[in-house]
Amino acid sequence: MSALLVVLEHDRGKWSEANDEALTAARQLVADMADGAELHAVLIGDGALDLAGQAGAGGAAVVHVANDAMLTDFGPEACGETVVQLAVAESVAAVMAVGTSRGNEVLAQVAARMDLPFVANCMTIAPGAGSWSMTRVQWGGSLLEDATLDSGDGPKLVTYGHHAVVAAPAAAPGAGEVREFAPTLDASLARTIVKDRDVQTAGVTLSTAPVVVSGGRGVGSAEGFAQLEELASLLGGRVGCSRAVTNLGWRNHTDQVGQTGTRIAPEIYIATGISGAIQHWVGAMASKRILAINTDAEANMVAKADYAVIADLHKVVPAITAEIKRRKGL
């Protein structure tokens, strides 16, 4: 029986939220594959065994747990090689992951090693008898591409875009049969394994903040961001910015919202002095509500927002702060 192998992620035994998306997408894909394919999952490295049950609950019939001294932390080459060996051993019909930073890198490694095509960041995938058809994202989501994937006799290699699929629990759990897998890894692959970690325990991050108050070129200076900082902190939120602002050196790139910055999903996004270029918009479009403050009524950000104030941000932002303080009795 043919199989779809889904590559799951974890950090030293901590389940990644992307896995719920991966399993949701995999259940659908396996159902669409012609010959009643079986859903296999692979978990790699230290702590993987403890998560096998969760993969089974998510619908996996078989959960491969791969271990080797080289697989303690993430290493793109060692992980990629492990997946290749497993895919060959099980002669799987396809390998799939969610297109997180690691997911795309591991699949690229698999593709390079097997010399097979790899289609990244799909929205939908239609498996076929020979080639597969898919719609994938370009421009970080600003544009869609219909594509086909033909991999000859080899497995199909694909990722779904991160957040392209809404995670849902499995209607019924899979058999979840655990199989240990010991890859044969050449010592030279240790050249790309983690030597050290430098993790800051940040509070609310930009990607998880319930409120993001952003400024664009219209803020006019680095100092101009003080008023946005004040408003954001009153709302328990974070300050964001556009790439124009990062390029001007007014803010650090860690604050940048957009295609080459951070993707945010707050309850409300307050975008001030930002024109709403498409590359900025793709980072902000998952916001539940958007308030644009802009002097230009024609700005794209205004057109796309739920609410807008057509005025100078330097007048409106302090007025909002003052009104909040008044109501809070501060």
Partner: peptide, 12 residues
């Protein structure tokens, strides 16, 4: 888009 105003009086 709901336009809330054209000056700082939109704050409320």
């Amino acid at each position: 888009t709901e336009i809330l105003g054209t000056d700082e009086s939109a704050a409320s």
